[in-house]
Design a binder for these strands. Structure first.
Lengths: 214, 214
DNA sequence: AACTAATTTCAATATATGTTTAATCTTTTA
DNA sequence: TAAAAGATTAAACATATATTGAAATTAGTT
């Protein structure tokens, strides 16, 4: 069936892109992993880059819907005041960590791709911007409302730090496991989330007033 | 001359690996960029992966020396007490941001590679561990001494967030520029450093006592 | 100057690459 | 059931790939 092979190819591409990056995988390897004729990847998706975009888009749509939903809920609850900063940060990260945790292997692979793309000089600016900037702008608007005396420039840098900390978590390297002699487990995303949100909130908070209290 | 072509190849490899990743670059492209016969890359460095290791090693040695130096200075100044947390974080980041800022194009490329590797599921655990874990352990020892009542597990996670925030800064994507409508400039590493150190210090600090004050 | 060792060149290896073509099979539609 | 549209196959395209081999050149040493 048509839809079945499309998903087979998407899943295979997702898995291989996740472990070896865009350039590290060939169309042939993808179709072999999918158990499908080599020509079918081109037939269904066109060029390799288009296939990659399809992989990105499939789950980005789901994520963006969920994250905007959580932000809107959070804004509504606090009305007419701005919501507490920590709730905004949580709305930003919750769907990501939840999907990565309980969404199965496909989601894990997807987030590993995101981690690589976010740190890729050629693709990062283009692809992350394309799929996630509208959402990021919505969150930044909420954050600037929650910290009205902070300088926007400072807050954008904080967002940048958040983005980096978050995506490294998704990368799937287990460097932290070795480094901590097994104290930490990179796959335990609940443990991450529990610490990431207050960590980031504290970082943002030092810019609460425009004179930073270093 | 032998040493000259070796450096030509290393520089070219560094530049291309930085912009397209390990798998996105061919040995031929590297030698063409270096203006050198294609066989010379193999002659001087062996397999592609070995060339990559040589690129990594060249500057890692310099960095590790500088960063350990800064940490030791910092520890000596504070003796017999542990140094303030912020000074340790600064010792961890200073050489990196300084080299990236004033070291020329080669260093910029090098750090862009680091950013990709750190977030690469296959290579991240291996390569980062190989070149930077001894240093990371030294820093973690100093940090746990500076925050003696914190739980080590929490502090390792904080290190992880620091690592992510830092490497994204080096990635060379200018996503933050667009996102902030030009308010931030990702190339202005002084602006980053000024904010990164207190941001991270504040994050670590919430784990000062073992009961976190969320 | 003569000999050795290191370096560079050019050509060739065999294989992998993304993509396309034309023919065949399957499903949907009328 | 017949025609049309869609999906799959196998083969081929030209090009790019990492790596190697054997000559030719250069540099270093006695």
């Amino acid at each position: 069936m048509a839809l079945d092979t499309k998903t087979l190819i998407l899943d295979a591409a997702e898995k291989l892109f996740a472990t070896r990056g865009f350039y590290g995988v060939s169309m042939r390897q993808i179709t072999i992993e999918a158990g499908v004729d080599p020509a079918l990847a081109n037939y269904h998706f066109g060029k390799k880059r288009n296939l990659f975009d399809a992989v990105m888009l499939r789950r980005a749509e789901v994520l963006n819907r969920e994250r905007i939903q959580m932000l809107d809920d959070c804004l509504r609850r606090a009305k007419p005041n701005p919501p507490p900063l920590e709730e905004i940060i949580d709305a930003f990260t919750h769907a990501l960590l939840n999907r990565s945790n309980k969404g199965g292997a496909g989601w894990k692979h997807y987030f590993a791709i995101i981690a690589q793309i976010n740190n890729h000089p050629e693709l990062g600016g283009v692809i992350m911007t394309q799929y996630f900037d509208p959402l990021a702008k919505k969150f930044m608007k909420a954050i600037t409302r929650a910290l009205p005396d902070a300088q926007p420039e400072d807050l954008y840098w904080c967002y940048h730090f958040l983005s980096g900390a978050l995506t490294l978590t998704f990368s799937g390297t287990n460097r932290i496991n070795n480094l901590s002699d097994g104290l930490c487990n990179a796959s335990d995303l609940d443990a991450v989330h529990e610490r990431l949100v207050p960590f980031i909130t504290a970082g943002f908070s030092i810019f609460k007033s425009s004179v930073s209290q270093r």
